[in-house]
Design a protein around this nucleic acid. Structure first.
Length: 218
DNA sequence: ATCCGGATCGCCT
DNA sequence: GGCGATCCGGATG
């Protein structure tokens, strides 16, 4: 059948993560999304990468979370069901993608900040203007959306396998390989340690020299 | 390695 | 009217 044919063509990619994965504490979801695979299918083709860096945005009390502004047309999907995409436009030119977490009414999400490319590299290179190094394809939240073809048209869409953007299970990541630091580029709640990334991974957006960082498990 | 400015626009005060 | 959950290129140490 068609499903089997699809699986045979994409043997590296695991099953979509279920809604229950996202219906949990946002920091735990941010930690556990490390190693998962973010995939986007468009008429141009399929592109996918392994998530190596995330940030948690934890609700209206978090000044850096867009939900700090309350329920507005922009933030409506943060209040939606867990397991959907919250895609926003920033600085007049970049898209960024989040996975909405927790239950309805609790506006929080995980920003995907960096990927290690797995599939569709020629397409990513074309979309990103053929950077000299492949590590520059997806080492930032705006870059990875450009590389995968994620746009505002995907805002509010399910991540569970029925839309263009899907998050799939990947190989487990050990706690010893996870580091935590404050979030990048935020001015409010600037010291909250809600950024998760893979230690020494070359695809992480920046290796924080000045940022306080610590191992998840000391 | 680090710091800067410019591009560009939707959203909220 | 001001300011971003950014990126890029250029200048400087």
């Amino acid at each position: 059948m068609a499903d089997a044919a699809l699986r045979a063509r994409r043997p590296r990619l695991g099953a979509p993560l279920p809604r229950s994965f996202y219906d949990r504490d946002t920091e735990l979801v941010a930690r556990e999304l490390l190693g998962a695979v973010l995939e986007c299918v468009t008429p141009e083709g399929t592109a996918a990468g392994r998530i190596v860096e995330t940030e948690a945005y934890v609700g209206e009390h978090d000044g850096a979370c867009h939900a700090a502004a309350g329920l507005t047309p922009r933030t409506r999907w943060l209040y939606g069901p867990p397991g959907i995409a919250y895609v926003y436009f920033i600085y007049g030119m970049h898209w960024c993608v989040n996975a909405v977490t927790r239950a309805e009414g609790l506006p929080s999400a995980v920003l995907v900040r960096a990927l290690e490319p797995l599939a569709g590299l020629p397409l990513m290179r074309a979309r990103r203007g053929e950077p000299a190094r492949d590590r520059d394809l997806t080492n930032g939240p705006g870059k990875l959306c450009a590389a995968l073809g994620i746009t505002g048209a995907m805002n509010g869409r399910s991540l569970l396998g029925t839309g263009e953007v899907t998050v799939r299970r990947g190989a487990a990541v050990a706690d010893a390989d996870v580091e935590v630091s404050p979030r990048i580029g935020v001015s409010r709640a600037a010291d909250w340690p809600l950024r998760y990334f893979l230690r020494d991974n070359p695809y992480v957006s920046r290796t924080p020299a000045r940022f306080p960082r610590r191992a998840l498990v000391p």
